[in-house]
Simulated scan of single mutants.
Amino acid sequence: MSDDSYTFLDTDLHIHRLDFDPPVRTAAEAVFETNHPTAISAFSLVELKGNYIQNLILVHRKISDSDSFERAFAKIRSSGGRRSSLMFAQLISLLGGVDYPINPWPEARRQLLTYLDAQIAVSWEEFRSSIDKIFDDLECTRATEPPTDDGERWSAVVPHCTKANTRCTVVSYVARHIDNLKRLLEALSSLNPADITKELRSIRKVAAETLKNTYPWEGTTCRSVGDLLIGLQSNSGKVLISSNYKGVFCKSSG
């Protein structure tokens, strides 16, 4: 499927729209509002779930299980890493910063959990509804699995793909882009080895294996090469706008 009227946006751009930091959120929103009609790859839903919603759930769980603000922060920092710690800090900043009353803790905890519940609940559908079109030439099974709430705990598990739980067409889809993979490998071979990131190494390995045999879809392959899948899908539109780690928004085409 192709429609070159659409501007593709990467996953991080939408995550920036949900950011607790107002300037980041405003900048990302401006990109969305000035590039209609907009589109995403359905695989971005998988990345949203794994890269953003899972972190929200971790922060929610650690706050819920802690008997003080200090204990909650320590748990988030030790088990969630930099992304979750930053998310927690931005949440506190949004709710008042240094003036936010962390005591009595039961009251503060209740407010924090209420805010996080709302954010988790709306993020999936808001992502879907904020885009003019979702392209799913992969027919990605994982992209049809929203976060769940059993009344006590949220869950946003992204299962390993197996023959028993997956009905996608990623193998045949990638096979239609063999020429693109060849050009990609040529481009990667020209890069300085110091510029090859972990994801680019994964993409290079998967692309080479695909050219020799077939796309190795089982397990977590797709999550390790998400930029590749999103990039291939964006060929259906006129341009892909992405954001780098500094929050700078970049356009690419072709």
Rank of each mutant, 00 (worst) to 15 (best):
L48E: 02
L229Q: 09
Q90L: 07
S172L: 06
N103L: 05
E186V: 15
T197E: 06
H160Q: 14
T38I: 02
E70K: 06
R109W: 03
T7E: 00
C168D: 01
T221C: 07
S129R: 10
R25W: 03
L56M: 11
V122G: 09
L18P: 09
S190I: 06
I57R: 09
T114V: 13
R204S: 14
G97S: 07
T166P: 07
L240M: 07
D3I: 02
A164C: 01
V31D: 08
T144Y: 06
E29P: 00
L232V: 10
I131W: 01
G254L: 13
G231M: 08
L112R: 02
I134H: 07
R201K: 11
A156S: 12
M1C: 08
F135C: 00
I102D: 03
Q54A: 04
C140V: 08
E152N: 15
D179N: 12
H60M: 03
Y115L: 15
F69L: 05
A121S: 15
V171E: 15
G231F: 02
I203E: 01
S84P: 08
N235E: 14
I134N: 01
D65F: 04
V31P: 02
D195S: 15
R61C: 01
E126S: 14
I15R: 07
R201E: 15
N35Q: 06
S224D: 07
L13P: 03
K205H: 04
L91M: 15
S85M: 12
S93W: 10
A108C: 12
N55R: 08
L45T: 03
S172Q: 10
R204A: 15
T220C: 12
